[in-house]
């Protein structure tokens, strides 16, 4: 378990954020499916066959291989924002992601962000806007998005 920090450090425009570098292997995709479905079912369940876990099913749908759910990248980005903006991201954060390229199993993912704008709102309130994305091992964006959060500094 890692300890999260409630209050963020101020960031300048252009500041870079990063999350983990992760190889999206079959075990990760299965664990992701187990977690999502268990949370939605309200009880512990295990994911079975879908395009994230089943080679033949993925191919039958026109995909070259099982692919990662775009929400996996979204969740890594959300975790990065939680660490950068603390409780404010949980309370008022906004995150938009577009899944612009398929992420085949065993792809290396890098989780990235950059502060695009910082606006003083008065009374110590500051609004940040960020570009966020994940890219593969060749530096090609596979998920592109943006985020916003208001903090008190």
């Amino acid at each position: 378990m890692s300890a999260l920090t409630a209050d963020p450090q101020p960031l300048a425009v252009g500041a870079e954020l990063s999350g983990p570098e992760i190889v999206v292997n079959a075990d990760r995709l299965a664990a992701y499916g187990d977690g999502l479905l268990s949370s939605a079912a309200g009880r512990a369940v295990q994911v079975g066959s879908n395009i994230h876990t089943d080679v033949e099913l993925a191919r039958s749908q026109g995909l070259p291989a099982p692919i990662a759910d775009g929400m996996l990248s979204t969740n890594y980005l959300s975790s990065m924002l939680t660490r950068a903006f603390g409780r404010f991201y949980i309370e008022n954060g906004e995150l938009r992601t577009k899944f612009i390229k398929p992420v085949p199993v065993d792809t290396l993912l890098r989780v990235r962000g950059r502060v695009r704008a910082r606006e003083e709102l008065g009374d110590g309130r500051v609004r940040y806007e960020l570009d966020v994305w994940t890219e593969n091992g060749n530096g090609v964006k596979v998920v592109d998005g943006d985020a916003a959060v208001e903090v008190t500094e």
């Binding site: 999260l4 409630a6 499916g33 187990d34 959300s78």
Partner: peptide, 23 residues
């Protein structure tokens, strides 16, 4: 349990999502 399951599936090990020790 549902919160922990979701967080665990995404390798989110931040303590806020697994217990009451948070703001």
């Amino acid at each position: 349990e549902a919160i922990s399951a979701y967080a665990t599936g995404n390798e989110e090990d931040g303590d806020w999502f697994h217990g009451d020790d948070n703001p």
